[in-house]
Design a protein around this nucleic acid. Sequence first.
DNA 1: CCGTATCCCAGACGATACTG
DNA 2: CAGTATCGTCTGGGATACGG
Lengths: 116, 116
Amino acid sequence: MLDPQADCTFDCPVAEAASVLDGKWTTLIFRELLGGTKRYSQLQRAIVGISPRMLAMRLNDLESRGLVAKAIYPTVPPKTEYTLTTLGHSVEPVIAAMAQFGSQLQQRAINPSHGE
Amino acid sequence: MLDPQADCTFDCPVAEAASVLDGKWTTLIFRELLGGTKRYSQLQRAIVGISPRMLAMRLNDLESRGLVAKAIYPTVPPKTEYTLTTLGHSVEPVIAAMAQFGSQLQQRAINPSHGE
DNA sequence: CCGTATCCCAGACGATACTG
DNA sequence: CAGTATCGTCTGGGATACGG
C-alpha cells in the first residue's frame, strides 16, 4: 500500500491524480464509464446539464491521457463508443472512496452533531 | 465544481465529495493535515507556491464544512493550529486512493506500454 | 448522431502590500 | 505569526450555432 505521506516535493502522485480528476464533469464521466461502454449520446443524457462542448473536451482529454478508448463506427448514422482502458479502470478505487466520503458528508449534514 | 442539478439519482455522494476536494490546493492541504496538527506557517512552508490568501481561504472553507478544527492561542506571538476533525479524517481513503492511482499514471508515463 | 467553432463572462487565482 | 485588503489576470466553462 502506498503511503499518502510519501514525498510530494517533486512529482506528487496525489497531484498527478488531481490533475486528471480536475474539471467540472470528470468524475461524473468516470462514474458513467465505470458502468461500462457508453455512446456519446448516452453520456450526454446521463450527465444532466453538460454541454456537448464540455463532454467532447473531457473525453478527448481522457483519451489523450490513455484512460479512455474511443471506437468510431463510420456507419450511418455515425456511432462512437467510449470505454475505460485498463488504466482508466484503475480510477475506480478513487471514485469508490469519494462515494464513501461523500455519503459521510451527507450524513453529517442531516445529523448536525458537532465534534472536536 | 459540480452542478447541484447533476443527477446521480438523488444527491450524488461523488459530486458531494468532489465539491469538497475542489480548489487548487485542497488535496495538498489535506495531505499535510493527515500528517497531524499543523500551524499556519508550517502549512505555508510545506505547500510550496501557495499564497497566504489562498491558504486562509481554503482553511476557512474546510473549517466551515466541519472538516478542519482551528485552535487559536492569543499568545505573543500569536499561534494557530489546524487539525482534521473526525469527519476530516474520513477523507484519508480518498487521498490514499488518489496516491495509488497517481503512481499508476506515472508508471505508465515512464513505461510506454500500449493500452487496449 | 457526433461533434466543433465562436463568443463571452464569473469567479478562481496570483501578487503585493498592509494590520492586529 | 497569522492573517486581510485590494487589484489585476486568466481561463474554465456556459450558451449558442453550425459542420461532417
